[in-house]
Computed example of a mutant assay.
Amino acid sequence: MDLVLVAEQLLNGLQFGLMLFLLAAGLTLVFGIMDMINLAHGSLYMVGAYLAAAVGGATGSFGLGLLAAVTGTAVLGMLLELSLLRRLYQRDHLSQVLATFALILMINEGVRMIWGEQPLMLNTPAALSGPVELLPGLLYPAYRLLIIAVGLVVALALWWGVTRTRVGMWVRAGASNRAMAQALGVDIRRLFTLVFGLGAALCALAGGLLGPLLAVQVGMGESILILAFVVIVIGGIGSIRGALVGSLLVGLVDTASRTLLPAALRALASPELASSLGPALASILIYVLMAGVLFWRPQGLFPARR
């Protein structure tokens, strides 16, 4: 196996895993702290991608598009929490699933009404459009390196915010014992709104960064939402560290298997069979990984302390 190809796939897996982390971190905070199943989380990712593409296309600035996406989606997320989702906290999970699934349908139709059916184009910044030579013979796109850098910075900032700040202490207290935290003077309702806004902002950041690599289209959030749920199940509900480790595992397994499995199967079967069977087996491996983790550690790798 070519070492340059292996290195490229490892970097691709790291990049994909860190983007999954941006989605899973917000989802695990909402699920772990609020005990709220939010299926519309992926729709916020889609809205962020559309806002980044629309504003970036209108202004010609990728940075302004990304800023508008993060700000606008955070405001939308907080408005949704204040107007609708807050009423679901005391309801059972089935009610939450049905209500947020309805939100998916409404947001998808709203996006169609505003931007139409055709996918939008979000261009890579011109300064980052070329490759960077990391090692002799190893050229890697500069934009993907930016995504990796942003993901690492956000992961470090979230860890510091949750473990080293007063707001993070309130978040951990609310996750451990909501009633006790409220009795000690923590404004749980405002805290929940801020946490939901942070989760929406992280979704938008992921959507805006992945926009130049993927199609910005209606329904793009549903498929990646499934992977985000897989990540938090592997890592442990409510755990930022678990979300990071789970995201990296899923990203590396998914990316590496899609490249290595077809190559390995070609040595055992015909090229046609290897080309069709390899991607199918690669997509299954993620769920095999999840099943193995659940069998070994039913609470996930790093469950939040309760």
Rank of each mutant, 00 (worst) to 15 (best):
residue 99 A to G: 05
residue 101 F to Q: 07
residue 101 F to G: 04
residue 101 F to I: 09
residue 101 F to A: 14
residue 102 A to F: 09
residue 102 A to H: 12
residue 102 A to V: 05
residue 102 A to R: 12
residue 103 L to C: 14
residue 104 I to T: 00
residue 104 I to G: 01
residue 105 L to T: 07
residue 105 L to P: 02
residue 105 L to H: 11
residue 105 L to Q: 13
residue 106 M to P: 01
residue 108 N to T: 10
residue 108 N to R: 12
residue 109 E to L: 12
residue 109 E to K: 12
residue 109 E to Q: 15
residue 110 G to S: 10
residue 110 G to C: 11
residue 110 G to M: 05
residue 110 G to D: 05
residue 111 V to K: 06
residue 111 V to P: 13
residue 112 R to F: 12
residue 112 R to Y: 10
residue 112 R to W: 09
residue 112 R to V: 06
residue 113 M to A: 15
residue 114 I to L: 10
residue 114 I to N: 05
residue 116 G to I: 08
residue 116 G to A: 08
residue 116 G to P: 02
residue 117 E to H: 13
residue 117 E to W: 11
residue 118 Q to G: 07
residue 118 Q to Y: 15
residue 118 Q to L: 08
residue 118 Q to P: 01
residue 119 P to S: 09
residue 120 L to K: 08
residue 120 L to M: 10
residue 120 L to D: 00
residue 120 L to G: 03
residue 120 L to A: 08
residue 121 M to N: 10
residue 121 M to F: 06
residue 121 M to Q: 08
residue 122 L to E: 03
residue 122 L to K: 02
residue 123 N to I: 05
residue 123 N to F: 06
residue 124 T to L: 08
residue 124 T to S: 03
residue 124 T to Y: 01
residue 125 P to N: 03
residue 125 P to F: 05
residue 127 A to Y: 04
residue 128 L to E: 01
residue 129 S to I: 12
residue 130 G to C: 04
residue 130 G to V: 04
residue 130 G to F: 00
residue 132 V to R: 15
residue 132 V to L: 15
residue 133 E to Y: 02
residue 133 E to F: 03
residue 133 E to R: 11
residue 135 L to V: 04
residue 135 L to G: 02
residue 136 P to R: 09
residue 136 P to C: 04
residue 137 G to L: 11
residue 137 G to N: 13
residue 139 L to D: 05
residue 139 L to V: 06
residue 140 Y to N: 10
residue 140 Y to R: 06
residue 143 Y to C: 02
residue 143 Y to M: 00
residue 143 Y to F: 08
residue 144 R to L: 10
residue 144 R to G: 01
residue 145 L to E: 02
residue 145 L to V: 05
residue 146 L to S: 09
residue 146 L to H: 12
residue 147 I to N: 01
residue 147 I to L: 01
residue 147 I to T: 00
residue 148 I to N: 04
residue 149 A to V: 09
residue 150 V to A: 05
residue 150 V to E: 01
residue 150 V to Y: 01
residue 150 V to H: 02
residue 151 G to N: 10
residue 153 V to E: 08
residue 154 V to L: 03
residue 155 A to C: 10
residue 157 A to V: 12
residue 157 A to F: 11
residue 158 L to R: 14
residue 158 L to P: 08
residue 159 W to G: 06
residue 160 W to E: 02
residue 160 W to H: 10
residue 160 W to A: 11
residue 160 W to P: 00
residue 161 G to E: 09
residue 161 G to V: 03
residue 162 V to R: 11
residue 162 V to P: 05
residue 162 V to F: 15
residue 162 V to W: 10
residue 163 T to G: 06
residue 164 R to A: 13
residue 164 R to E: 14
residue 164 R to Q: 14
residue 165 T to H: 12
residue 165 T to R: 14
residue 165 T to K: 09
residue 167 V to T: 14
residue 167 V to C: 08
residue 167 V to G: 13
